[in-house]
């Protein structure tokens, strides 16, 4: 029960992270490992190569809990992560995808 309330409360404070990363096998493992290790829930992941193909963009939908700042710092430390930008949950990238998950 408490779990449900927590998730509902947290649902209003979701955050979208936009990562630009080097495009090679293994980058996803590095990033997902950081979140999994800390049991930091990732609600959604999208990853596509950028037009120049040496880089990819990763979109993460996460909850904004008190550990998020530390989480972002750990992601920024990764050698293959070029930049991290925070967006609000209203960002269109996951909203538009919702149609595919009904």
């Amino acid at each position: 029960m408490s779990m449900v309330i927590e998730r509902e409360a947290a649902a209003v404070t979701k955050v979208v992270l936009e990562l630009e990363v080097a495009n090679h096998a293994g980058v996803m493992s590095h990033i997902c490992g950081l979140f999994a290790r800390r049991a930091f829930n990732v609600e959604g992941i999208l990853c596509m190569p950028l037009p120049d193909a040496t880089r990819s963009r990763i979109w993460l939908l996460v909850f904004d809990d008190e550990r998020l700042e530390q989480m972002v710092k750990q992601v920024e430390k990764l050698e293959d992560v070029i930049s991290v930008v925070r967006h609000g949950a209203e960002h269109a990238v996951f909203e538009r995808l919702e149609a595919f998950f009904r």
């Binding site: 096998a25 293994g26 493992s29 590095h30 490992g33 290790r37 990764l78 050698e79 293959d80």
Partner: peptide, 14 residues
Amino acid sequence: TYGMTIPLTKHNFL
């Protein structure tokens, strides 16, 4: 080895 050492290294390469 690459996968195994992701969380233990500062960075790793295959």
